[in-house]
Design a protein around this nucleic acid. Structure first.
Ligand SMILES: [Mn+2]
Ligand SMILES: [Mn+2]
Ligand SMILES: [Zn+2]
Ligand SMILES: [Zn+2]
Lengths: 144, 144
DNA sequence: TTTTGATTTAGAATAATTCTTGATTTGTCG
DNA sequence: CGACAAATCAAGAATTATTCTAAATCAAAA
């Protein structure tokens, strides 16, 4: 655990908001001016390989990083971009609900949800009340 | 639906094995020598936007494409690279099993599983029987 | 203090994808 | 049947996240 690795890890632990490598880099620079983006990438890989951090991907967007080691899914808000952890309800981690082909051995599962976070869902709700216009919310939803 | 789009779509329908854009390109070239990779990308995007095809991502690997429009998850074999469709067991599409934060509105969910397909699981099984060596299968599993 | 091996850094390289820009095709109308 | 316009295709350049390379730095141990 070098200074840079410690710093990168601390950045992830501080806000738990699943920053990208570039975002980690920006935050880390505040504490250690000389740190480089390459080092941030190196540290994130080292931490990931060490099992302290998980890499989180949605589609082809830049990878995000998460220090929550409990089994969990991710919720991505399509409106504000926030990423939240979602805890499993049962102890099979959502594996129920799928007809795994006979004989397949599942080692791990990744679950990503997209939608509107509570705040954005509330804003959209009040918007359509005020304007009586549903198209905005429909458009937001169609925006994928 | 132009000739190129029809061809790209047919390639996807023929094998249902979730090829990458490059793989689609190679297969399409056999039928239409002049087609370009850029056109394959264009067609895949058009088909995806039209809702005929779904883009499937695992980590940061090249995107794969799937013409199965039913709700389904994906199983990726860590050993042979095969990608299989996984049908939902219930009608909530695996949404059960997760404690969605209060107020969040989930629009869609993507589920990816990794492990060993039936064939590779069987091979590994017989391998460790023959050699009495469990390390190979453990290594294969650790290989992520 | 010197050695040694790991780590960091800056910048080049890579690879999937997207963009730009003409060329080509397709459909429409006189 | 020809224009003409709009859509689409294709070639290559550009973009972007990430990885690689090679030299500089660091930090324990001898
Ligand atoms: Mn997380
Ligand atoms: Mn599929
Ligand atoms: Zn939001
Ligand atoms: Zn397999």
């Amino acid at each position: 655990m070098t200074r840079q690795r410690r710093l990168v890890y601390d950045v992830l632990l501080r806000d738990l908001d699943h920053p990208t490598a570039s975002e980690v880099f920006l935050r880390a620079k505040d504490q250690l001016a000389g740190i480089s983006l390459a080092t941030v990438y190196n540290c994130l890989e080292t931490l990931t390989d060490a099992g302290l951090v998980k890499q989180v991907n949605l589609d082809r967007e830049p990878s995000r990083y998460c220090p929550n080691l409990h089994e969990h899914a991710h919720f991505f808000c399509m409106s504000c971009g926030a990423v939240q952890d979602v805890a499993p309800a049962s102890n099979d981690g959502g594996l129920c609900g799928w007809r795994i082909p006979e004989g397949n051995r599942v080692e791990k599962m990744e679950v990503a949800m997209r939608g509107l976070c509570r705040r954005c869902a509330a804003v959209e709700e009040s918007d359509s009340e005020e304007t009586g216009d549903v198209s905005a919310s429909r458009a937001a939803r169609a925006a994928n």
